[in-house]
Amino acid sequence: MSAVPLARQHPVRAMVDFYVTAMRTQVQTQFQYRAAAYMYLVGMVAEPVIYLVVWTTIAKQQGGEVQGITVGQFAAYYIVWTLVRNMNIVFTPYGWEWRIREGQFSAALLRPLHPIHYDIAEFAGGKLIWVVLYLPIAAGLTLIFDPDLSVTPLEVCVFFVAIWGAYLIRTMLLWLLGMVTFWTTRGSAIFETYIMAELLLSGRLVPLKLMPEWTQSVADFLPFQWAFYFPIQTLVGDLPAGELLGGLGMQVLWIAVGSFLVWICFRASVSKYSAVGN
């Protein structure tokens, strides 16, 4: 050993290296718990299946469709929904409470890297496994519910970009909520209110098209639909190319807004950090 300064990587190369390494680490971790991950995924399917059964029943009672959405289209919507939901699972305020209480966030703050990068990389790595595990479930749902789905290559390409956009938007939103934990260790209470708004305004509970017009107007000014409804619609909505690309633009806009707010709030929040529990 010698005291010669260590060679440092170029910042851009280093950031790519970090993301690859952190994602790889998370993939390895997920391999350790593949059975648990699978059971978690199976449990997660319960929510869309309930929605799907309810809407299928209503559609059949109304002559095969609800406001122009057929039984097969409902099936397509909620099967794609499960994949989008897989992608936009991120660190929740419950997780924030845990990591602050257990002192894990202190370790994150000591790193020469904004902690959001670690969260993004960690969950992104996990998704690589979850999506692979999810594919047989999606095949099973397809066999059972017979979705009406025909897609173009452009739609598939936009979908693959949009699900990562959805992931980043929801990461920013829940980071903003999570940072409430710097002021109170019970930030999860606010999360419950957030979930209610998200259910109604994102297309998570029902396709936005079925919501009252005023609700759709409100949703247009909020980020929720760009993390749920839009990525689903890229595959099931038969959207023209302009709308597909416009939707990606909206995602970029909300990611930029979210990043800015996270940056501002994080600076204010860290000064409040009391490093409790460690």
Binding site: L6, A7, R8, Q9, P11, A14, D17, F18, V20, T21, A22, T25, Q28, T29, Q32, Y33, G103, S106, A107, R111, P112, L113, Y118, N278
Partner: peptide, 26 residues
Amino acid sequence: RNQLQWDLPALDSFELNRAIYRVARE
């Protein structure tokens, strides 16, 4: 306090720290 990846060998955590601290591999 434990700052290493609980489920993985420590070598993986060292590698992650290398990437976080931007240390050249050699």
